[in-house]
Amino acid sequence: MPNNSPPPAPPLDGIFQALADPTRRAVIQRLTAGPATVSELAGPFEMALPSFLQHLKVLEDSGMVSSTKKGRVRTCEIDIQNLSAAGGWIDHQRAIWESRLGRLDNYLNEIQSTEND
């Protein structure tokens, strides 16, 4: 019986490492508008194609970008599920800190009100 479950999401370390570089973040931003060829993605950057391809490899290894080749044209697209994994982690951390700051705010308000009494 074939395994129809989706592959596990890549580790967050790889996702955040990929997002640490401004070139790779720009590629992700461009791909949110839709698939693009390697030539289209590389166009805005002043770097040799082999250097740009290294950036694409990091993005593909992180699971955020996939590519297909048809003839000599390689087209890339974003994998929103893996990008969402990073967003989910960030949202969880934000919720923890907002809760802590809310409790601190309540505590400080209690102290201030008892000092005013």
Rank of each mutant, 00 (worst) to 15 (best):
P2E: 13
N3L: 05
S5H: 13
P10C: 09
D13G: 13
G14F: 09
I15D: 08
I15W: 09
A18T: 07
A18P: 06
L19K: 05
L19V: 03
A20N: 06
T23A: 02
T23P: 01
V27R: 04
I28G: 02
Q29I: 12
Q29L: 14
L31R: 00
A36C: 07
T37P: 08
E40H: 05
G43H: 13
F45D: 00
E46L: 10
L49T: 05
P50I: 02
S51G: 08
L53I: 01
Q54P: 09
L56S: 01
K57A: 07
V58Y: 09
V58M: 07
L59S: 03
E60S: 15
G63D: 10
M64Y: 14
S66V: 12
S66E: 14
S67T: 01
T68L: 10
K69D: 08
K69P: 06
R72L: 11
V73R: 07
V73T: 07
R74N: 02
T75A: 03
T75E: 04
T75F: 06
C76L: 06
E77A: 10
D79H: 15
I80E: 15
N82P: 13
S84A: 14
A85F: 12
A85G: 12
G87P: 04
W89K: 11
I90E: 02
I90K: 03
D91F: 04
H92G: 10
H92S: 11
Q93E: 08
Q93R: 04
A95G: 05
I96R: 00
W97L: 05
W97V: 01
S99R: 15
R100W: 14
R100I: 13
R100H: 14
G102E: 10
G102R: 10
G102C: 11
L104Q: 09
L104G: 05
Y107F: 13
Y107I: 11
Y107P: 06
L108W: 03
N109L: 15
E110V: 12
E110P: 09
S113Y: 04
S113C: 01
T114V: 11
E115P: 07
E115N: 11
N116G: 03
D117G: 08
